[in-house]
Computed example of a mutant assay.
Amino acid sequence: MSGSAGDPRIDHDFVWVVEDSAEDAEAIQRALGRTHPGLTLEFTDRGAGVAERLLEATRRPGLVLLDLHMPGLSGTAVLRSIRSMPELNNVTVVVFTSLTAPEEVDATYAAGADSYIYKPVNFELFRTVLKGAVDYWQRRVKGGDEGPAAQSPPS
Rank of each mutant, 00 (worst) to 15 (best):
G49D: 02
Y118F: 13
Y116R: 02
P120N: 09
H36R: 07
V94K: 01
S84P: 08
I10P: 09
G72M: 15
T100V: 08
N122L: 13
L79C: 11
E23F: 06
V105P: 00
R140L: 15
R46P: 06
N89M: 10
T35P: 12
D145E: 10
V93C: 05
G49P: 01
V129Q: 12
V93F: 14
R30W: 15
E87D: 14
T76Y: 01
E87Q: 10
A31N: 12
G112L: 11
V121E: 15
L55C: 07
P71D: 13
M85W: 14
F96Y: 10
G143C: 12
A77G: 07
E23Q: 15
V78Q: 04
L65C: 07
H36G: 05
W16C: 00
L39C: 04
I82R: 02
R127H: 13
S21M: 11
G49N: 00
R59T: 12
L39G: 08
G3M: 12
T108Q: 09
E87A: 11
R83Q: 05
R46Y: 13
V105E: 03
D13N: 07
P154G: 00
M70S: 09
S98V: 08
N89R: 14
V15Y: 00
R127F: 10
D114N: 15
L65F: 14
G132P: 11
F96G: 08
G132T: 11
T108M: 09
K119Y: 10
T76W: 03
E124L: 11
S74K: 03
P37L: 08
R46N: 13
V15I: 11
L73F: 04
G144H: 09
A77Q: 06
V17W: 09
G38N: 10
E103S: 12
V64T: 13
E124D: 14
A150M: 09
A48I: 10
S155C: 07
T100G: 08
Q151N: 06
L66K: 00
L99D: 14
S84W: 02
I10F: 01
P71Q: 11
R30A: 15
E87M: 08
L54V: 05
F123R: 05
D20K: 05
E146K: 08
T128G: 13
D13V: 01
Y136N: 02
F43A: 01
S4A: 09
G47V: 13
R30L: 15
M70T: 12
L41G: 06
P37V: 05
G147Y: 06
I28A: 03
S115A: 14
P61G: 10
T35I: 05
G62A: 12
V64M: 04
H12C: 09
K131Q: 11
R34P: 04
P153D: 02
T40K: 08
D13R: 11
R139D: 08
L79M: 08
S74F: 04
D7A: 07
D114S: 15
G72P: 15
G38P: 00
G112V: 06
D67K: 07
G72V: 11
V15G: 06
K131C: 08
P37H: 06
F126Q: 03
S155H: 10
A57Q: 01
I10H: 04
P153V: 06
